[in-house]
Design a binder for these strands. Structure first.
Length: 338
DNA sequence: CTCCCGCAGT
DNA sequence: ACTGCGGGAG
């Protein structure tokens, strides 16, 4: 899309701007703009409309954006928490094919769900456990019907503030503004007040920005912005960012973003070996200690530094996490998914 | 190497 | 407030 428009240029506040979207701005006057969110542009209606129009004009067509089923949405959110969306698509489709409803998932063996998770390289196997557990909660505590408010959704295992608002928004159009690392980056760059704050209150600003009662379209739109136009490497013009005329970063050229804690390297980490163990146990049902050890690392020697004692430690933690069961038969030690 | 739509346990 | 948790892709 050609955009052009030199941008920064006029910082003038005229505007009703682009759009003509169908969303009429905020219900007049009530929030008069920046009442509880100093630092937001005065013409909030234009800012909101520009983003929503931009999203509606063109956005990535992920399959979970075509459903309003809370369970399907939840599965997509949990999978997306740290896996690239393009990789989530096939896993999401396979998962729902295998367990189409919360009743199906709740009735499944956890070991099968964990094995699926590992087999689809979705990482963080605890999330499979959480999802299985959450399905059980929906069945037993809500009679199979998802709660519809963020507060209630947060009671589900593995569902925190972000996921609760995402599900409430995308399934029920009933959420508050989502705040994840993408949204934080957008807000930090766009609005100087956030950028300059010692301890930015993202939640308050995000909610002040969101048009009340339109969480579904809004949260989709602002996350799309963070993913497509305002990623770590900004693509303002290429993506025709709708906020260029208001954006502090675009006008100053300062595209710094909030620090995201960097993970310790994965290669050689204990997480890597946990992952290998779970993957192997998903393929072999049960394995004895030394066979498992030799299969997860070439330098495994029963009595060496990375030997039985080391492996017992990993398995013990996996057992504490409820992912693995350790059985002692005679002198043999056998592990299987739990 | 970094990045990717967080959360639970402590 | 801090820590641990997978693994593919760029």
């Amino acid at each position: 899309m050609t955009d052009s428009d030199a941008a920064a240029a006029d910082a003038s506040d005229d505007s009703e701007a682009a759009s003509g979207g169908d969303h009429e701005a905020d219900g007049g006057g009530t929030d008069g703009g920046s009442g509880d969110a100093p630092g937001l542009p005065a013409d909030l209606g234009a800012v909101r409309g520009a983003l929503v129009d931009w999203y509606e004009a063109d956005h990535r067509d992920f399959p979970w954006r075509r459903t309003e089923d809370a369970y399907e949405i939840l599965v997509s959110e949990v999978m997306s928490q740290q896996t690239q969306l393009d990789r989530v698509v096939p896993a999401w489709e396979d998962f729902l094919d295998e367990w189409p409803t919360t009743a199906d998932l709740a009735a499944a063996d956890r070991a099968d769900v964990v094995a699926f998770w590992s087999d689809h390289s979705l990482g963080y196997n605890n999330r499979a456990k959480y999802l299985h557990e959450a399905a059980g909660q929906v069945e037993s505590e809500y009679g199979g019907a998802f709660p519809e408010t963020p507060d209630e959704l947060q009671e589900l295992m593995g569902v925190g503030p972000y996921t609760a608002n995402a599900v409430a928004s995308f399934a029920f159009d009933n959420g508050d503004a989502v705040v994840d690392t993408n949204v934080k980056r957008v807000l930090y760059r766009a609005f100087a007040e956030i950028h300059n704050a010692d301890d930015p209150d993202y939640e308050t600003v995000a909610n002040a920005l969101m048009p009340a009662g339109e969480s579904r379209i809004w949260n989709n739109a602002i996350m799309e912005l963070g993913g497509v136009a305002c990623g770590k490497k900004p693509r303002c013009d290429e993506a025709s960012c709708p906020w260029r005329e208001w954006c502090h970063a675009y006008q100053t050229g300062d595209f710094t973003a909030p620090d995201v804690p960097t993970q310790p390297s994965f290669e050689g980490s204990r997480r890597q070996f946990r992952g290998r163990i779970v993957r192997l146990l998903g393929e072999h049902d049960e394995m004895d200690l030394d066979t498992l050890g030799h299969r997860i690392r070439v330098d495994y020697t029963p009595d060496g530094e990375h030997g039985r004692e080391w492996l017992r430690g990993l398995l013990s933690d996996l057992a504490d996490d409820g992912l693995v069961k350790i059985e002692e038969e005679d002198t043999q030690i056998i592990a299987r998914l739990q």
